[in-house]
């Protein structure tokens, strides 16, 4: 009895050791591949940044109101491109290293590897959505304030959340999570907002709108007063 237990323990131990022995070169290969890509990525990003600086990429990108520089306020555009190159190589290192483990069927399944591009795409979408939401909401806020709209802040917040919700729906759709529920939920949410606004204006504010129109119609034509202050 004891011999049988000992034998089966030996066999189990042998299998574990065998697994570890099989895995170790893979892990080593993963680390080597990852470090290699990290180094290449760092060197290439440095090279790209230098080349772009030499080509006055920042100055060229700085031209116009919708320049790339406007989207990366703290970093220069060339630095931004350099960082994108670096992180692309880091991700490539993880993917190549993962496949180099040689046991992708067991540890990093084919599904997970196939899913990586989706995750990368979703991360880019999320980042772009966040940047866009911040930029557009700030634009709306400043324009609203300069137009003397007392509800500029509310408007800006609404625009921000609209873009964030849209981004969230796109990210979930890109990750293939939730399936039709996301599309349906988003459709209902957006449709609901528009419907609620229509009802609010059409029913709730009917009297207000009619009174406002009557007041406008009854108002005598104002003669434009000459401006007393001249800014330029």
């Amino acid at each position: 009895m004891w011999q049988q237990v000992e034998q089966s323990l030996h066999l189990s131990m042998g299998r574990v050791m065998n697994q570890i022995a099989t895995l170790l070169p893979g892990i080593l290969a993963f680390i080597v591949a990852f470090l290699f890509f990290l180094l290449v990525g760092w060197l290439l990003s440095l090279l790209v940044t230098r080349i772009l600086s030499a080509l006055r990429f920042d100055e060229r990108m700085g031209r116009g109101a919708h320049a790339m520089a406007e989207w990366s306020p703290r970093a220069t555009p060339s630095l931004l491109v350099g960082r994108i190159v670096f992180w692309c190589f880091v991700i490539a290192g993880v993917v190549v290293g993962g496949s180099a483990l040689g046991t992708s069927e067991h540890i990093v399944s084919g599904w997970m590897l196939g899913y990586v591009p989706r995750v990368v795409g979703a991360a880019i979408l999320l980042l772009a959505g966040n940047v866009l939401a911040r930029f557009v909401s700030r634009s709306v806020l400043i324009t609203g304030v300069n137009l003397n709209l007392s509800y500029a802040r509310l408007l800006s917040m609404g625009v921000r959340w609209m873009i964030l919700v849209l981004t969230g729906a796109m990210v979930l759709d890109h990750l293939a999570l939730g399936g039709a529920i996301v599309e349906l939920g988003f459709g209902i949410l957006f449709g609901g907002i528009v419907f609620a606004l229509s009802l609010a204006v059409g029913l709730g504010s009917r009297d207000l709108v009619s009174r406002s129109l009557e007041r406008e119609a009854a108002r005598p034509v104002e003669v434009a007063q000459p401006e007393k202050i001249h800014h330029f």
Binding site: A65, E70, W71, P73, R74, F135, R138, T143, V145, N146
Partner: peptide, 15 residues
């Protein structure tokens, strides 16, 4: 320093 977008910065000066 491009602390924020230049379009926003100049717009925020108006008030």
């Amino acid at each position: 320093l491009r602390t924020i977008s230049r379009v926003h910065l100049l717009g925020a000066l108006t008030p």
